[in-house]
Simulated assay, not measured.
Amino acid sequence: MNGSPTSQSARESALLPQMVELIEHHRRACPAYARVLDAIGHSSGRRYAQTRELPWLPVRLFKEHALISTGREQVAVLTSSGTTGANVSRIALDRDAAEHQRGLLTATLATVLGPRRLPLLIVDSPSAVRRERSTIRGATVLGVMNVGREHAFALDDEQGIDATAVENFLQRHGHATFLIFGFTSLVWTRFHAFARSRGFDLANAVLLHTGGWKKLADLAVSPREFRASFLEATGLRRCHNFYGMVEQGGTIHIESASGDGFYCPDFADVIIRDPQTWEEAPVGAEGVIEVLSAAPRAHPGHVLLTEDRGVVHGIDDGEWPGKRFSVLGRLARAEPRGCADTLPETAYGAQS
């Protein structure tokens, strides 16, 4: 992704020096991060032969400490959507970091959407985006809006379908390729039912969605059923889920068109770690997801151990080069969170 196909070995060779540079950058810029590195035995000048040797931070650390690697004026403090108001990650951004992340997100999305901006139907309400613009939910919507044009919101302020807005959008743009974006549970519980009831033809649509699978699992809707039902009801064939987090803004891992797994952009990677040994798990074995990204420069979020379970299904054997992986859910004692989970249960049914 993000240009010419990159094999896993080529990805790791290119990523390793970038990650080492970032370790030293954050060591100099963030005293708290430097103290962590010293405490775990990763002193300055240490050499790394492979990306799996790099020191990771538990993502929960960003809920408990202010880790900032910039002295510049901050333009935003993004928050994750934890289940409690206080227990959220707070990620500082300066202007350069924010612009850099927007560029990376745009480039990653271009690999599946093409270079042209497409008309965009957003399965959310404008009031929710305004209210949540400093959370991962709002930031994600705003980020995707950068790759779209002639935006329309499919939901009203009460999170119900705005039938007039949807119908007008499809009348204007349904004859050619257009983009639909929303959080997975909203797309399913709001938009899918409406589109099916109206018999909409979505054959020209590209659906991009994220988060919310736990609630769909509670409703007994699997990712396979999600895709198949949209195809049967509306003719929609191009459907891409993606995985990302506020702690690595600008970095998303996109599901292939066939649904054979998530894939990393060229500037990022994932490692599945055995929760007993913390060594890299073999292909096919479940473990804890570690995410690596060359994007974060204003905070030390470049190598993070998440609170998500996952599995790598294969390497350089799928629709795209690199690792193809699945996210299996949250760890048993991890706080549920997700950008699709910031509204009350009455608004839609789910939580990732």
Rank of each mutant, 00 (worst) to 15 (best):
T51N: 01
I40T: 07
C239N: 00
R333I: 09
W213F: 02
L104H: 12
A86F: 13
R95P: 00
R190F: 03
E53S: 08
S44P: 01
I315F: 06
R297F: 10
E232I: 08
F183V: 07
S9H: 13
G301C: 04
L343R: 03
G261F: 02
H26L: 11
L93G: 03
P275V: 07
F183S: 00
Y348T: 03
E247K: 05
T70A: 12
V36M: 15
L142R: 15
S326L: 08
Q8D: 05
H209K: 07
R238K: 05
R196A: 14
A66G: 06
A10H: 08
G3E: 14
E255F: 03
I68P: 11
S134R: 12
G301K: 00
R198G: 14
M1E: 13
P55S: 06
E12C: 15
G310W: 00
P58H: 02
A86N: 15
A76M: 13
A205T: 02
V59Q: 04
L113P: 10
R198A: 15
E24C: 00
H26G: 10
S7P: 07
S222W: 03
P55H: 09
L216C: 11
V327S: 02
G41R: 11
T277E: 04
A176R: 11
W278M: 15
G318P: 05
A285V: 14
P119E: 01
L78S: 10
C30R: 05
S326Q: 13
F200I: 05
R237T: 11
T140N: 06
H25R: 12
G250Y: 07
V112M: 14
R297M: 14
A92H: 12
S258M: 08
H302Q: 08
K63Y: 13
E73Q: 14
A165T: 04
A268E: 00
G244W: 02
P115K: 11
W320N: 03
A233Q: 07
I136G: 03
T346Q: 11
H175G: 08
G310T: 04
D38K: 12
Y33N: 04
E132T: 12
R72A: 14
Q101T: 15
P55N: 13
T79E: 08
Y243W: 07
R149E: 11
V311T: 10
R116A: 10
P31G: 06
T306Y: 02
R227W: 02
M19V: 07
W213L: 02
Y48N: 05
I289C: 01
L170Q: 02
E232R: 09
H313Y: 10
L179I: 02
Q351S: 12
G250M: 08
A257R: 14
A154V: 09
G82R: 09
R333A: 15
Q276Y: 06
A128N: 14
T51Q: 04
A107S: 15
T251W: 00
S256Y: 09
V20H: 06
R46A: 15
G284E: 01
T135Y: 05
V144L: 05
E279T: 10
A332T: 05
